[in-house]
Design a protein around this nucleic acid. Sequence first.
DNA 1: AAAATACTTTACGTTTACGTAAACTTTATC
DNA 2: GATAAAGTTTACGTAAACGTAAAGTATTTT
Lengths: 148, 148
Amino acid sequence: MDIKKTYSISELAKEFDVTTRSVRFYEDQGLLHPTRRGQTRIFSSKDRVRLKLILRGKRMGFSLAETKELFDLWDETLSGNEKQLLLMLDTLARKRAQLEQQKNDIAQAEMEMDTAEARCREALADLQARKRKQTKATTKEPESIDQK
Amino acid sequence: MDIKKTYSISELAKEFDVTTRSVRFYEDQGLLHPTRRGQTRIFSSKDRVRLKLILRGKRMGFSLAETKELFDLWDETLSGNEKQLLLMLDTLARKRAQLEQQKNDIAQAEMEMDTAEARCREALADLQARKRKQTKATTKEPESIDQK
DNA sequence: AAAATACTTTACGTTTACGTAAACTTTATC
DNA sequence: GATAAAGTTTACGTAAACGTAAAGTATTTT
């Protein structure tokens, strides 16, 4: 299975480079469900996975609410109820469409970055060329030093 | 070139399905630069393009500030100053890295959605199977009607 | 001319996702 | 046993990205 271990809040925070404040906030919003030893939080490897998913979701532009919805939906899906299963399939389909849109957006952006970069390089080359000409005209180059 | 036309605020809002409030906000933040006829805003096709870019940026998880930075950087790049050109190239490289990360995230997500969907369909198939069995056991099927 | 339509500015309100500080408890270290 | 280190709760603060009136101007339609 997984690494079957438990984690402290700062272990997780360090590993994923977030603040403990954020982790507590995610729990508060119902995205993580650590157990307690006394009043100290103990995170399971399931929590760890979910934290990873939360952060990836953020990078993909998902809100915490959206991510929570998916978590909850998946938990209910595991109950095996038919209605939930169908709902999950539907949700997955919609998410896929969203990802398709994002892929298109990225592809577009990459193309435009290509042309932008090309123009930059061209402009730079022009500059360099003019510089060389300037240098040649200004600093009387030693016609040929170091020849035998 | 482009469609060489001008646009009213509500034309743009309608076309891109945003509120006029948002459009004004984007101007306020320095992302759009409409001219004025009296006090009424007149948007150029350049503004239109930028609005499109703003929205795509949002879908890709970019903040307005990030997008504005890119706009400003690009404008300064056009001045042809060498330092700006190099800065732009550097920025482009960093953005590309960001997009790579996003593509990885999306690919990961798609894989996980694949397995999630598979599990759903499996669970559903099980349910249906059990249902059929139930039906067969409960409602004494007419052994063979319609035979000659 | 009255009313509807489209635009404007000003400004306070709201949600999300935390930051930051204060005050306190528990556990580890010297 | 003092102190530092890591954890806790409570609570106010903040930046981003608008929403939502309120109140006014300008133009167009009836």
